[in-house]
């Protein structure tokens, strides 16, 4: 018996938690519980990110996803949390159809996961030799458009393809602006006068 390789154990732990709570989200009928499970699942996912050496992204995951997106969702839950919406029963036939389709999908995806040779595990010695490097600086530079890992790339064709993310970084801010204006517009309480066509339709 070989010595236990701790990162793998942690992987099992985190992936187990995130998968288990993902199933929890899926199977639970209670919206409040679902939100809670989702928080735990996403948080465990950030653990997976840390394990893969993506510490900054892991932190972002915790902050934006778990902190931000979920607060938003929970906010929504609270806004609509009347007794009758807490639990909604899904018709059994839908479950079965969903599980059949989902099972097929899962099967295809899992077999895909195992079918690329490059995706198999490294040797233990090889894996232990990998040195953790700081990711924040390269990430920050990458967002500014400078890929500091670019000179290290031996393959010239690949080096050309290493793009900086300045464009996305800038354009996404405009996108967020537009999206927030849109969301604010919809969420604004004031009801608008309807278009003429609406009157015929509004009677329904």
């Amino acid at each position: 018996m070989q010595e236990i390789y701790w990162p793998s154990v942690f992987f099992l732990l985190f992936s187990g938690i995130s998968c288990a709570f993902a199933v929890g989200v899926l199977l639970s009928q209670n919206i409040v519980r679902m939100a809670f499970y989702l928080v735990l699942s996403l948080a465990a996912t950030s653990g997976l990110f840390f394990l893969a050496g993506a510490d900054f992204v892991g932190a972002m995951q915790l902050m934006i996803y778990v902190g931000g997106t979920l607060v938003l969702l929970i906010f929504g839950v609270m806004l609509t949390s009347q007794e009758r919406f807490i639990e909604m029963h899904t018709w059994a036939g839908d479950w079965v159809k969903a599980f059949l389709a989902g099972g097929a999908l899962l099967f295809i995806l899992v077999s895909a996961a195992f079918s690329v040779p490059a995706w198999q595990s490294m040797d233990r010695a090889e894996a232990e030799a990998v040195v953790a490097s700081k990711t924040v600086t390269p990430l920050g530079m990458g967002l500014l458009g400078v890929r500091v890992d670019k000179p290290e790339e031996p393959d010239a064709a690949r080096r050309d393809g290493m793009a900086g993310y300045l464009f996305q970084f800038e354009i996404v801010s405009v996108h967020l602006l537009v999206v927030l204006i849109g969301a604010a517009y919809l969420a604004r309480a004031k009801r608008k006068r309807d278009l003429p066509a609406v009157q015929s339709d509004g009677s329904q």
Partner: peptide
Amino acid sequence: TIFLGVEMASVPSYVLVGIVKGRR
């Protein structure tokens, strides 16, 4: 960029579809 473009084009469109707020 592909994903970003699709999102940037889609998400405002979602709101545009519901631009008449009071209509079922």
